[in-house]
Amino acid sequence: MFPKNAWYVACTPDEIATKPLGRQVCGEKIVFYRDGKGAVVALDDFCPHRGAPLSLGKVCEGELVCGYHGLKMGCDGKTVSMPGQRVHAFPSIRSFPVVERYGFIWVWTGEAEKADPALIHHLEWADHPDWAYAGGLYHVKCDYRLMIDNLMDLTHETYVHTSSIGQEEIDEAPVTTKTENGVVSTSRYMDGVMAPPFWRANLRGNGLADDVPVDRWQISRFTPPCHVMIEVGVAHAGKGGYNADPAHKVSSIVVDFCTPETETTMWYFWGMARNFKPHDQELTKQIQAGQGKVFAEDTDILEAQQANLLRNPGRRLLMLNIDSGGVQSRRLLDKLLAAEQTPAQPAAAAA
């Protein structure tokens, strides 16, 4: 259901600031913490002594201490010590490749020797003074692919997000879908429309009139295994739309990391990066709160959808042209899964 040889966002730095964090990613139960030098460590969340979750313990001088009998684990998965016991012969537990980058903790759940940090999805807006970012985390009871489907087809906004970002013109605007260089993109442009409530608030936040027609755009990009970045924005009509001068528009990147937990549950790291008034912290809080409400609406419908699919496993789902983004995204995922399941072929013998 999910590729293992890939980097996934597992948590944010604040989640491991004071104690270990236990989190399941791609079916693997992992404990995250910081060692004595502040580097992130990811180990199998299983004490080799009696099987207690190591995440229920604590970090003492950079070593993970089991909360059951005080066994200490090294960052490499080897047992270090245990009060009054000889434990150096204990077998090592699994250590996962882990990287801290762009304000997130990334973990590789597959073959460790293939874990190249250069493969981590580049986030051009992260750690940049001209951009501001804020987001959150939802635990969602649905297959992560349903969330990808949702984000690659924004037609649902008209019906699910009626009080925030939805408007009838979304239904009426044509959608273009393409796959290039391993990335699926869907785009929609709406000219001469009135901005919905969420975007009216952003126009006001950037000192622009909110009661005039605007040109609006939505460009969703899926990068395997589960990352969707959506360029969104509005510009005063007739000023160039997507290419309008910043003085006439508000635009941002909706950030979506859909990390699988199990086959029917996921960790949804959501947020928005913007390049207008990046130092206005109050505006950042307002956008974060508004976006949180929007994504909560998605969560409600997706969890209900997942429950319905589990009750009806034999029912065939119908596909329309608006589903092309999700369909092409799943094709990329299927290729990754097939590649992992195909055994490596031995090198041909020399003649």
Rank of each mutant, 00 (worst) to 15 (best):
K141I: 14
A10L: 13
Y8T: 10
G70W: 02
D44S: 08
N150T: 03
K178M: 13
T179D: 03
D215N: 08
L71A: 10
L336T: 13
G182W: 11
S187N: 01
V140R: 00
M73A: 06
A209F: 02
A52T: 15
K37F: 11
K277Y: 00
G166Y: 04
A338Y: 01
G67I: 11
C47P: 04
L283K: 00
D14Q: 09
F269T: 02
G241V: 04
F2L: 09
G67N: 12
V250D: 00
V99P: 03
T179Q: 13
E172I: 12
S55W: 00
N243S: 11
A347N: 07
E28K: 09
P213F: 04
P83L: 14
A195Y: 01
V31Y: 02
A115N: 07
H49I: 15
E113G: 14
I16F: 00
A173W: 00
A349N: 06
T109V: 14
G241R: 02
N206C: 14
Y8W: 09
D171R: 07
V255N: 03
F104P: 04
W125M: 14
P213Q: 12
K239R: 15
K72G: 04
A304G: 02
L317W: 05
A304F: 01
T265H: 00
V232F: 08
V254D: 07
R221Q: 15
A118F: 08
P129G: 13
V80W: 07
D280Q: 00
A195L: 09
V228T: 10
S92A: 11
A112T: 11
S252E: 01
V214H: 05
L302V: 06
R204M: 14
N150L: 06
E124I: 12
A89N: 09
E180M: 13
C11R: 03
G182Q: 05
K285F: 03
D149P: 09
P97T: 11
A115E: 05
F32S: 01
L64E: 08
G62W: 05
G51V: 08
M190L: 14
E297D: 12
H88K: 15
D211Y: 05
G182H: 03
I322P: 06
K141A: 15
R331K: 06
Y268T: 07
I170R: 06
F2Y: 05
G238L: 04
Q85V: 08
A296H: 01
A351W: 14
A349L: 11
M190E: 10
V140G: 01
W108E: 04
D215Y: 03
P48S: 13
L154W: 08
T176K: 01
G27S: 01
D323R: 12
A350P: 01
T109H: 09
A247R: 01
V232S: 10
V65A: 13
A244V: 08
D14G: 03
